[in-house]
Design a protein around this nucleic acid. Structure first.
Lengths: 149, 149
DNA sequence: TATTGTTATACTCTATAACTATA
DNA sequence: TATAGTTATAGAGTATAACAATA
């Protein structure tokens, strides 16, 4: 006999940590859906916006900022470069500063529009009177993430 | 030249969706660390508490509640059963109600203590005046997760 | 000595498809 | 027809180790 979730006791329903994970998962799915038409995953789109804001950063710099391991930045950056969305400009003989190409600049504009629409949808789901406190709480928790990468 | 994250512009720092993901990730790492001594992953620990609160639910019921796909519930439940933390009691000839064994009951008590400590630590990181609004906001977003599983 | 970029590898989580047995 | 449980498989994301080249 099929038992609906509503008939069961969810012992975790009031746990902020559990809600946090569920909310985050839902948001990531929504964002991935929004980015799919651009053929970008959330991590790739994020890196593009960071390159725009910090031209000539190295992929190690970007990895530290976003807490993406160097080993995982390599293939991500390679994908963006092979799509000619970014270019590597030599900084010294072992590292390269990353910059957007023309088509990268045009794509990042669409990324930013998608991000803005996504964030607005998120906020609209939160009662206006709670929004500031909600964001403050998230910032407090997110800062705890800082590992000494 | 090594560039510290603090010297870079993070264009996402005010985005609730981005903060949500970072905060969720940090919380999951902290929870996994807390559960490691019990030799349980977060998903396994969660399932144990749901079985305690809903004895004789089937694994499909639990999967719907937690939004874990049936296909992924199978090995998870098998691990718990092979550790003799839960027992399968026949409901009909194709499904089984899950209940905690004696050692499962004793372990779930430790799980609940770990969860409580984890959630308390989370809340302590949020200014007291923001906590209620923070939780309300999370609940509003988490409800959006409801897929018709 | 430390850092950059890279490759290889592995583990977890998640998602889909396909199948048998049962309702 | 729909559901339960299972298996196999594949895709992400993430993590560590090791290496060559360079600082």
């Amino acid at each position: 006999m099929l038992k609906a979730a509503a008939e069961m006791i969810d012992p975790l329903n009031r746990y902020p940590g559990y809600l946090l994970r569920r909310a985050s998962l839902a948001a990531m799915v929504a964002l991935a859906t929004r980015l799919a038409p651009l053929d970008l995953r959330p991590g790739e789109a994020t890196v593009l916006t960071v390159i725009e804001a910090n031209p000539n950063s190295t992929q190690s710099d970007i990895g530290r900022l976003l807490e993406i391991a160097r080993a995982n930045m390599a293939p991500l950056v390679s994908r963006l470069a092979s799509r000619e969305l970014i270019e590597r400009q030599p900084v010294d003989r072992r590292s390269h500063g990353l910059v957007l190409t023309r088509s990268g600049r045009s794509l990042v504009a669409r990324v930013k529009a998608a991000f803005a629409a996504h964030e607005q949808t998120l906020l609209e789901n939160i009662p206006a009177s709670h929004r500031n406190a909600f964001i403050s709480g998230l910032q407090a928790l997110a800062e705890k993430t800082s590992n000494g990468n």
